[in-house]
C-alpha cells in the first residue's frame, strides 16, 4: 500500500513542479546572496557557513510543507482515509518519504556546490553532507507534522512556522556544532549520534501524532 501511495505522491510532484522547485531555488538564492551581503572575506564566510547552510535548509523545508495536505484536505481525500482507518498510516508514511525525496534529498545533492560558494574546508564539507543526510529526514517529519496540524487553517503559513521552528532548534544547534567541530579538526561523532537519536525518536513517534492531527482536523 505504501508503495502505491508513494507513487501517487511522486506523480503529483511531477505535475506540480513548483512544489519542490521553489524551495530548492530558495535555498540556492539565499546561499548566493549571503557572500554578497556579508562580504567575500573567505575566513568570515567559513566561520559562518554551518549556520547559514542549516538556516537556509530549515526555511526551505518549511516553505515546502505548507501545501502538503491542502489539496487532499479540500478534496475530501483525508476525510475518507480517516473513515477507512487502515490506510491512514501508510498515507502519512508516504507523505514523509516523498517530502524528503522532493525537498531534503535535493538539498543534500546540491550541498557540494554550496560548500564551494562558502569556501568550506574538506573536513567540514564531509560533516556538512552527513548532518544534512541525517538532519533533512528529521526536518521532513516535523514539517509534515506542522502541515497536518495547520491544514484546516485558512492562512496556516505563519502558524506553521511558529509551531515548527522551535522544534527545529535542537537540530540546528547540534548540526552546526558538528560542522564547526569538523572545521576545527575535532571529532564530531557525538553530535552525529545525537542527530541520529533525534531522527529515530521522531520517526518512531511523530507519524502517530501526524495521524492523530489528521483525525482531529476532519472531526
Amino acid at each position: 500500500m505504501v508503495s502505491v501511495f508513494i507513487r501517487r505522491e511522486l506523480a503529483l510532484l511531477a505535475r506540480q513542479k513548483a512544489d519542490w522547485l521553489n524551495p530548492l531555488l530558495f535555498f540556492i538564492i539565499v546561499l548566493t546572496l549571503f557572500p554578497l551581503g556579508v562580504g567575500p572575506e573567505p575566513n568570515q564566510l567559513r566561520i559562518m557557513a554551518p549556520g547559514i547552510v542549516w538556516i537556509a535548509a530549515l526555511l526551505s523545508v518549511l516553505l515546502a510543507s505548507e501545501r502538503l495536505f491542502r489539496d487532499d484536505y479540500r478534496n475530501g481525500v483525508i476525510e475518507q482515509l480517516v473513515a477507512n482507518r487502515q490506510a491512514l498510516m501508510p498515507f502519512v508514511l508516504a507523505k514523509i518519504v516523498t517530502n524528503w525525496l522532493s525537498t531534503g534529498l535535493p538539498l543534500v545533492v546540491i550541498s557540494p556546490v554550496v560548500a564551494m560558494l562558502l569556501g568550506v574546508e574538506p573536513a567540514a564539507f564531509v560533516a556538512m553532507m552527513l548532518t544534512l543526510l541525517i538532519g533533512t529526514p528529521l526536518l521532513s517529519i516535523l514539517s509534515v507534522l506542522g502541515a497536518a496540524i495547520t491544514m484546516a487553517a485558512d492562512k496556516g503559513g505563519i502558524l506553521l512556522a511558529l509551531l515548527i521552528l522551535p522544534l527545529y532548534i535542537p537540530l540546528l544547534i547540534f548540526a552546526s556544532a558538528a560542522i564547526e567541530a569538523a572545521g576545527m579538526g575535532l571529532p564530531y561523532n557525538g553530535q552525529l549520534a545525537i542527530l541520529v537519536a533525534m531522527l529515530l525518536l521522531a520517526f518512531a513517534l511523530v507519524p502517530l501524532a501526524i495521524a492523530s492531527a489528521l483525525r482531529i482536523n476532519v472531526s
Binding site: R8, A11, L12, R15, Q16, D71, D72, R74, N75, G76, V77, E79, Q80, A83
Partner: peptide
C-alpha cells in the same frame, strides 16, 4: 463524503 475524494491533478 460530500467532497469527491478525487485529486484533480491525477
Amino acid at each position: 463524503g460530500h467532497q469527491s475524494g478525487i485529486h484533480e491533478q491525477l
